[in-house]
């Protein structure tokens, strides 16, 4: 019967391995579902579960912390979720922790995310109600996104127009024109030269001003010489006196002119006679004509006298004296 016993041993090993595997699998699955865990429960009330169901995971700061044990509708806007929490994690959850319904990945299962909040607080106790944070669900996000999209579309439309206008505008042509760049460059260079010249100039001016301050040069002398200033002052005083005299003179002149005009208008005095007596004017004119004729005749006589040999010597002497006088005058101007 040795063979029989070996067969039985083999059979026993086979059955045992199968059973062990089955129990192991059950244990793992049970542990994942927190069936053998302790009975520590936390509660949270949401207004919207977004599809959270019994058995979904509970994460504490992203760490697997338990499962959703029960979902109960309390009233039309409140749903109470009872979560079973691992014994390892429960001692880290504070009373002020916040729970929110989230999603595993983009399209995955729903989860309850418990996140710690800064600040001191007591540790949670059995059956505590955590604060709920209602998260924006996918539909709301998409709705918002649609609005944003519309805005972006209109903005891009406007921007397109603007860009087109800029593209066809003269400024862009100016910017694109290379010669302008070159001339701009050269003018910039010129400006640079100019400024350097200006710099030099200012340095020179500075020196000059310094010199003047120190009293060097004519201007310096002029500005610094106190004697000149005194003289100038005197001159100004005299000019003022002269102007006063001039004023009085003009007053007198004015008076005289007034008298004259008065005489003229009243027909008194010799001037009036001179100006208004037409007969006398005729006589005078006649006399003047006669005088001219007389002087003409005299002129001829004088010319004849000049050419006469008796008087020639006297006229020559006169000319020589006149020439000497002129030469002396010239000499005097040259010496000055």
């Amino acid at each position: 019967m040795g063979n029989q016993k070996v067969n039985n041993i083999k059979l026993g090993a086979f059955v045992l391995s199968g059973l062990v595997l089955m129990i192991f699998a059950f244990f793992i699955i049970g542990r994942n579902n927190n069936i053998f865990g302790n009975d520590f429960k936390l509660k949270v009330r949401f207004s919207n579960l977004n599809g959270l169901t019994k058995g979904n995971n509970v994460l504490f700061s992203g760490l697997q912390a338990g499962t959703v044990k029960e979902i109960e509708l309390i009233n039309d806007s409140t749903i109470e979720v009872t979560m079973q929490i691992n014994s390892k994690v429960k001692s880290f959850i504070n009373k002020n922790a916040v729970a929110a319904v989230g999603t595993e990945g983009l399209m995955g299962n729903k989860v309850v995310n418990i996140s710690p909040v800064k600040g001191m607080s007591q540790k949670v106790a059995e059956g505590d109600l955590l604060q709920a944070k209602n998260m924006a669900n996918m539909d709301e996000i998409i709705e918002k996104l649609a609005q944003t999209n519309n805005n972006v579309a209109s903005i891009s439309e406007v921007l397109k127009g603007t860009v087109l206008r800029i593209d066809s505008s003269a400024i862009l042509k100016l910017i694109n024109d290379e010669s302008i760049g070159i001339s701009l460059k050269s003018s910039l260079e010129n400006i640079y030269k100019m400024t350097s010249n200006a710099n030099k100039m200012t340095i020179g001016l500075n020196h000059l001003v310094n010199d003047i301050k120190k009293g060097k040069g004519t201007a310096g002398l002029l500005l610094t010489d106190t004697l000149v200033a005194g003289t100038l002052k005197d001159a100004v005083v005299q000019i003022r006196a002269a102007s006063v005299n001039a004023n009085s003179m003009t007053l007198q002149l004015n008076k005289m002119v007034k008298d004259l005009s008065h005489d003229l208008s009243n027909g008194k005095g010799p001037i009036n006679t001179l100006l208004k007596d037409s007969l006398m004017a005729k006589n005078i004119s006649f006399t003047m004509e006669n005088l001219q004729k007389g002087t003409d005749g005299f002129n001829q006589n004088m010319e004849a006298l000049k050419h006469n040999f008796l008087f020639r010597g006297y006229f020559r002497k006169l000319e020589r004296q006149k020439k000497e006088q002129q030469a002396e005058l010239l000499k005097a101007t040259q010496q000055r």
Partner: peptide, 10 residues
């Protein structure tokens, strides 16, 4: 594998 498995599967 075991995260996806449940008693209702096994």
């Amino acid at each position: 594998v075991f995260k996806s498995l449940d008693f209702s599967d096994v």
